[in-house]
Amino acid sequence: MISFIETILGTVLSSFVIVIISTFMALLVDFLFPSFSKWTRMILIFIVVIVVLQPAFEHLTLIRDIAHSISMMFISIYPILTASMIAAGGAFSMLNFQPAMLLFANGAIVLTERILIPLLTGALIFDLVSRILPAVPFTKMADLIRTTLLGAVSAVVAAYSIFITVGGTMSWALTGLASEPIKELIRQNVPLIGSFMTDSMGTIGRYSSGASVFAGGWLISAIWTVALIPSFKTLLTAFFYRWTAALIEPFANEDITGILDDIGRTLFVLCAVSFLIAFAFIYTALFSIILVKLITSMK
């Protein structure tokens, strides 16, 4: 875990140091050659886009690849899973694992891969365009896309929790008194998606606590870690973008801080989208584990 955070710090922090140094360089060049200042700004945007947006782009492609591979995996194993569920008979009815829920969870991934992530890419490009060419602003468009995406993702997660509570067999301990302060902390300190994060983590947790009777706590926590590492990484990177924007605001061009801030906001939405993927991954993994357990124990 420590080395994992160190890698993120290494790649992301070094590129932000580059932003700060290059801002100083642009300040010096502006002082020496005031007639060149228009181009200095452009070149600074060049440096920012090439060097600093690399982590953001990597995260976007990472989440896109994960969504693609999970949706492919789902399409290939869904018939097998449902067939074996039918073969297993009524043993599933007590577990509240419906095939409809599986279809819904993974349908959300297909939705993510086909619509949500391309839209998010669009928001990123709109932001860049409106910063590079201030005469043609698309900021409202980008904001609209982001809020729409966040709304869609929250709706899907709300639908998850409705699905789960309709069955009613599973309840979760994290909703208890002890975790309320933590939830409140997350809700207030993570911008844009804080309350969404606590809600969706509650939804995921409600499932896995019911399943831990069957799958064992260590296995559950392993699945949780694997599923949530991309989201966590994205969240940390998004925070770095906003911190750097705040740090260089006094002396940098407004465009540069604006770009960093916008990218940070887009990454927060990407983090929310990746929660959707994590949920579907956890659900499918638990489902397969319980299926295998049931089949082996029935012999």
Partner: peptide, 21 residues
């Protein structure tokens, strides 16, 4: 002075600014 920046940028920026001036 700006050696820590990735390779061509500092050179290119100061070079093109001097050339322009």
């Amino acid at each position: 002075l700006f050696e820590p920046l990735p390779e061509p940028f500092a050179k290119l920026l100061i070079g093109s600014a001097i050339l322009f001036y």
